[in-house]
Design a binder for these strands. Structure first.
Lengths: 115, 115
DNA sequence: GATATTGCTACATATATTGTAGCATGTATG
DNA sequence: CATACATGCTACAATATATGTAGCAATATC
């Protein structure tokens, strides 16, 4: 069974629009996809390194995600293992602000929980 | 069976760190979560409206996602259906640039495919 | 009080993810 | 050369999640 990889301009999992943003969301809305991009932002990593940084990801899924991300031009295989492409790097710059936001969000969530 | 909802500061699905960004990624890395936030950014929507905007989402999953997003303070129920909270709105402002980026990305992917 | 719309729940089926084992290849070490 | 270790996977069973369809209860509309 081959993995369905979202292609630009093509419908994705039921979305008949094929809107690029929905294609992207479909890709990133798979387990560990965001985490992989995030982890690779600090530089190339071997398969095993990624595996231990993405805590509980199974090699099966890691490999599947890496395949998908490679086919979509976000990740590539280099000398030192897997790394972000120029595009992947650009994507990361848009993801990065979420790091800071998530902290304030998490803080707010905690306060609410403590009430 | 209750849905495990990521809580700030708590470990998530095997990630023992509980880093906020990983908590957020765990939440957003579930099917349709990103799409729901995106769709709600234009204003409140009824359950059924959301359902038809998120093409193939099943009511089961839509309801599960909405519950999760509500518990995490990103979505709330208002007079006119579901809508983003102030925090959700803020999250969206960080997501928004991805809309434009996804278009150039999709374009690049197409060119590559055509070679 | 009949009809329509909305917000779901139920449930069977299909798909995705996890967790563990382990193999093939490459490189370093005796 | 042998053997030991790391790396990049694949296989596969068990479990969790998502889809698709049906339909029900509650409210609004005629």
């Amino acid at each position: 069974m081959s993995v369905k990889i979202p292609k630009a301009g093509e419908p994705v999992r039921g979305s008949t629009s094929g809107k690029p943003i929905m294609v992207l969301f479909d890709l990133l809305g798979r387990r560990w996809a965001l985490g992989i991009v995030w982890n690779l932002s600090t530089g190339p990593q071997t398969f095993r390194a990624l595996q231990s940084n993405c805590a509980s990801v199974s090699p099966t899924v890691l490999n599947t995600r890496l395949k998908e991300l490679r086919e979509c031009g976000i990740v590539m295989k280099g000398e030192n293992g897997y790394e972000l492409t120029a595009e992947g790097d650009e994507l990361f710059t848009y993801l990065q602000p979420l790091g800071h936001w998530s902290q304030t969000w998490s803080h707010a969530a905690k306060l609410k929980e403590d009430q």
